[in-house]
Amino acid sequence: MINVQDIRDTARDLLAKGEVRAVIGWRAGSRGMAAEPCVVTKPEEADSLVWDPTCYHNLALQLVNDRKDLVHSKKTATAPIGIVAKGCDARAIVVLLQEHYFKREDVYIIGVSCENSGVLDERKVKAQVGGFAPSAAAFDGDNFSVKTAKGDKKLAGREVMADRCLECRTPFPKENNTAFGDDKTGREFDAQFAALARFEANDEAARWEFWQRQFDRCIRCFACRSVCPMCFCDECVVDSIEMKIAPETTAEEKANRIRWIERSAVRSENATYHMTRALHLAGRCVDCGECERVCPVNIPLRLLNTKMEREAREAFGFDPGASIGGPSLVASFRDDDPGEFIR
């Protein structure tokens, strides 16, 4: 079990010594029980950091934002930036490093292990506590306890943990500068890709019908894209009306900007959006589950992303977020790559 004070002390120490210019972490949220991301810049603010089963957010996104701020304000960083990272956050950082988005020495990773827990799925919690929104949550090693208006309630871990955490094998942030908590790499609640396997038990017609329904419901709010640390491009290829105009952009480039899909939230365009996104995340998505969590209309996006992940695992033995040095999935080619699927 991690003592949150350890995390705070480390952050305070790093800030006091000037070894980092800020620490990205979670603090108590202003809405219900969920913690929220924060950036701590002064040693005395370090005590606001929290670590509990509502630290859902993948903080790697804050790293991306920090880097964008630096580039756009044309500032150079005075010191590395610190970040508190759980297993999936660290995997995302590894992919960003693999894609040279920043350098390893630009970040100081304070790893936190999820050990035998993970984060809650608020929808599951609400179902268990009869629709009441809890105001706080804690984990005692086996069970979650949540505070609700009707008093405290104990919930079995398996019942309310997020699907991605049930399937997670790497709850320990392997890439770190310092880490807290036990390394439970390889722990298994659900088999990996269990949710996907359950879905794929349906026949093709049923699956297609299911996805048509999902694509009909998407409102193209792009929350999924905004929350994803891997969706860091300045301009997304699916944007049909936005185009980043740089001084060197020629008139011809402007005229020839790519209009792969239309902005309108109709089934065909939504389907294209989601398939493009899934392909662009193949070998990059680390299954932090954030996109699925933030979707206002509950589209099960993990089914798309883990499908790609499983294909890459089975065909090429590829494990996103496992190593900084290796080539990216889509860019690498080996003589013995399987080719049976090419017809």
Partner: peptide
């Protein structure tokens, strides 16, 4: 290369035969 869109991920570097 469209500089404005390149993020320097080096995937193309790996892919180029």
């Amino acid at each position: 290369v469209r500089n404005s869109h390149c993020t320097g991920c080096e995937m193309c570097v790996t892919a180029c035969p």
